[in-house]
Simulated assay, not measured.
Amino acid sequence: MPIRDTLTRLPRRLAGSLLALLLSSGAAQAADLDVSEARLRLMPGDLPGAGYFQLHNTGDEAVTLVGADSEAYGKVMLHMTVSEDGMSSMHAVSELEVASGDTLEFAPRGYHLMLMKRAHPLAVGDEVEVTLEFAGDRRLPVTFDVVSPRSL
C-alpha cells in the first residue's frame, strides 16, 4: 500500500478509535452537552433497571430532555423519586430543562431513567447504549456501564 494511502487513513482510524474510547468510558459529548458517569443499575430477573448519569449543558441556551430510548429495553422513561412523610414513590416526568451552564444529576433517590422490558440478558460489566432525546429532535447516544445495585 502506498505511503500516501496509509497516511490518509490514519486520521480516520485515530478519530474512530478516540470516539469509541470516549463512548466506552461511560461518557458522551455533543457540541454543548456533556454526559458523564453513565451507569445502569441491573436488577435480577425482569425487574426494571435504573439509569444514572450527569448531564451538563455547556451551551448558551437551555436544553430540554424529553425522553430516552434503548434497543436493550422495550421502554425507557424519565422518573423522579419523591419522599413524603417517610414514604418514597416514583413518578414519571415528561421533560426536564437544563439551563445554560447547569448540571442535572440522575442519581439514586432522585431523577433516574427507568428501563423496563429487557430485550436480552445483561450482566454486570456489560455496556448498554441509551439515546437521550431532547426537544427539537436532538438525540445523544450514551454508553452506560452495567453495574450491580450494591455499587451505587
Rank of each mutant, 00 (worst) to 15 (best):
H56G: 05
D46W: 06
D69P: 00
L113R: 04
I3L: 15
Y73S: 00
V124I: 14
V147A: 12
G45F: 02
A123G: 08
M43C: 09
G125D: 03
G45C: 04
R139H: 13
L23Q: 08
S24P: 04
L10H: 13
V142D: 01
R13M: 11
S25K: 04
A107F: 11
V82F: 05
A107I: 11
M1A: 10
P141K: 04
T6H: 13
V130H: 04
L19A: 14
R9Q: 12
S88M: 14
A28G: 04
V82A: 06
S36A: 06
L152Y: 10
H91A: 07
V63H: 00
S36L: 06
H120T: 00
M87P: 01
F53I: 05
A123E: 14
F53V: 02
D34T: 06
T81K: 15
L113C: 07
E129L: 05
A38V: 02
V142R: 00
G45M: 02
A31T: 14
E127D: 08
L18Y: 09
P149H: 13
G110F: 08
Q54H: 08
T6E: 15
L22F: 07
R41M: 15
A28H: 02
E84T: 14
T81P: 10
M80E: 15
A72K: 00
A31P: 05
P141H: 03
H91Q: 11
P2G: 15
T81A: 15
D137R: 12
E71F: 06
A119D: 06
D137G: 02
G86Q: 10
L14I: 15
D85G: 08
E71W: 04
A99E: 12
L78N: 07
G136D: 11
M80N: 14
V147S: 08
E95D: 13
G101K: 05
M116V: 08
L21P: 01
L152G: 11
S148K: 07
R109V: 12
P44R: 09
V124Q: 06
H120G: 06
H112C: 12
A107N: 07
L140H: 07
V147G: 05
G136Y: 13
E71T: 10
V130G: 00
L40S: 00
R150Y: 09
V63W: 00
Y111M: 06
Y52L: 15
L19M: 14
R138N: 03
P48N: 06
E95M: 07
A50P: 02
L115H: 09
G125Y: 03
E61D: 14
G125Q: 03
A62Q: 09
G125H: 04
S148W: 02
A107W: 01
V66Q: 03
P108F: 10
F106W: 06
S17G: 10
H91T: 10
G59D: 03
Y111N: 07
S94I: 08
R12K: 11
D46P: 01
A72S: 05
S24W: 11
S17N: 10
V142A: 00
V147D: 05
L115V: 13
V35L: 10
T58W: 02
E71H: 09
T143S: 13
A99M: 08
D5F: 08
A68L: 02
I3F: 15
S24I: 07
S36R: 04
M80Y: 15
